[in-house]
Simulated assay, not measured.
Amino acid sequence: MNATQLINMAVRIVMRKFLNKGIDAGIDMATRRRQDTDPADRRDAHAQAQDTKKRVKQSMRIARRIGRF
């Protein structure tokens, strides 16, 4: 492996981590509800948002795996 390949590999790893953090933050921001609602409703909505977030991340991983072939 030459230096260019090593640098590209490191950059891809770092960029993937930044991209995933940005996507997670965006999903969290989009799923936040107003603070004046009932706390029980907010807990239910938060749990549902976390489940949705988990499914989206899983589907992204699957899509990346499929894209490799």
Results as ranks from 00 to 15, higher is better:
G22T: 03
G22E: 03
R64S: 13
A49Q: 09
R61C: 02
A30E: 06
D51G: 05
Q35G: 11
R61S: 08
R34D: 12
R55F: 14
A40T: 01
H46S: 07
I27H: 02
M29L: 12
R65A: 03
Q48A: 10
D44Y: 10
I13D: 15
I23D: 04
N2S: 10
F69A: 12
S59N: 10
L19K: 04
D44H: 05
T31I: 01
A25H: 11
R34Y: 07
R61P: 00
R64E: 08
D24R: 06
R42D: 09
R34T: 13
A63E: 05
A49F: 01
V11K: 06
R33V: 07
M9L: 13
K21E: 10
R32P: 00
R68D: 11
A3C: 05
A30S: 11
D24Y: 04
P39F: 02
I66V: 15
S59Y: 14
R32L: 08
F69P: 09
A3V: 14
Q5S: 15
R55L: 10
K54Q: 14
R32F: 01
R16A: 08
D38S: 11
D24A: 08
T4I: 09
K57Q: 13
M1V: 15
T52M: 02
P39H: 03
R68S: 11
K57D: 11
A45Q: 11
R42N: 12
N20K: 10
D41L: 04
L6W: 01
P39C: 03
G22F: 10
R42H: 03
D38A: 13
A30Q: 10
T52K: 05
D28C: 00
D41P: 02
V56N: 01
L6R: 15
R64L: 14
K57C: 01
G26F: 09
R16N: 14
I62V: 07
Q48L: 05
Q5G: 08
A63R: 07
I23K: 06
A40H: 03
D28N: 12
A49T: 06
I7C: 03
K57L: 02
R55D: 12
T4G: 02
Q5R: 13
A47W: 06
K54P: 00
F69R: 14
H46W: 15
I27M: 10
N8D: 13
F18C: 04
M15E: 13
A25P: 07
M60G: 04
F18P: 04
G22N: 07
R65F: 09
A63D: 11
R61D: 15
R55E: 13
V11D: 03
K21F: 08
Q48M: 09
K21W: 02
I13K: 10
F18Y: 09
A3G: 12
Q50P: 03
R16L: 10
M29T: 15
T31P: 00
V56H: 00
D41S: 12
D41Q: 08
T4D: 13
R33G: 12
D41C: 02
D28W: 02
R64W: 14
R33S: 08
